[in-house]
Design a protein around this nucleic acid. Sequence first.
DNA 1: CAAATATTTGCAACTTTGTTGCAAATTAAT
DNA 2: ATTAATTTGCAACAAAGTTGCAAATATTTG
Lengths: 143, 143
Amino acid sequence: MEEMVLDILRKHNLSNTDSRRAILDVFLSSKNALDHHDMEEKTGERFDRVTIYRTLQTFIDRGIVHTIPTADNIVKYALCREQCSAGHHHDNHIHFFCEKCGTTTCLDETSIPKIPLPKGYVGNVVNVVVNGTCSKCGNAVKR
Amino acid sequence: MEEMVLDILRKHNLSNTDSRRAILDVFLSSKNALDHHDMEEKTGERFDRVTIYRTLQTFIDRGIVHTIPTADNIVKYALCREQCSAGHHHDNHIHFFCEKCGTTTCLDETSIPKIPLPKGYVGNVVNVVVNGTCSKCGNAVKR
DNA sequence: CAAATATTTGCAACTTTGTTGCAAATTAAT
DNA sequence: ATTAATTTGCAACAAAGTTGCAAATATTTG
């Protein structure tokens, strides 16, 4: 895990600092997307809010992390899986927002269908967020 | 136009007040989705921020307006077209966010394709936001 | 390895966005 | 026209996000 973190930093030409390592660690050990507040908490409150904002922004700029616009209007961040590069994100998966537990997940198994656009519109990145009940919360109900 | 506004209020059992009329007016005369700030501006700064927040919320609750989660993470509001009712939105169209001019538009001509979900997930509302270049900005480039 | 340079961090201060309680004003009902 | 219900604005607050700058840390170079 630690090796993975260093690898990511090296690959993207980022200097190896405490906060970057800590934040990447949190991402790697979390199944769900996280917001700024989660990140403060999970890094043990040992970094300034500003540092976290700036680190997340750096990761976005380098294509390490992408944001997910969810219905509750809090920016959530998640690791990019594939071929994202600086300034260009290609997260081709669907995001799922669970209305019961509030978690946002990247559905890596899925891919976004082709979206037909009216004449004159040129699409770039497509965001699909499905709101509903996740597998964990749905199963709980059946009991 | 004025008649339309009153009609909407009557249909949803809402009392006829200055701010509600003004805000509906703005929606009816705007092609794009608007955020809270836009709304303050376009109503001529004559309402308190709180009133605008509350009025927008009321409209959402009644199914008159829906929100659009965009990449820039500012809540944008737009009129519901079809069969939205209190507590249940059915906006089945795609939203388009223009990276050049920053406007968010409802593409009424479109509809959201069926999104296949992994086992265990139950979908409810699906949000599709395409980022790209809108017809206006794309044409401008060609010159 | 140490000095020089570049980058990153934390602090303070601030802006923007959104919320809540309550009294005054407006709207609707009788 | 009076009463009852709803809506508004104000004040105060909370949370989210940004900026400038000096101190601290990381990297480079000799």
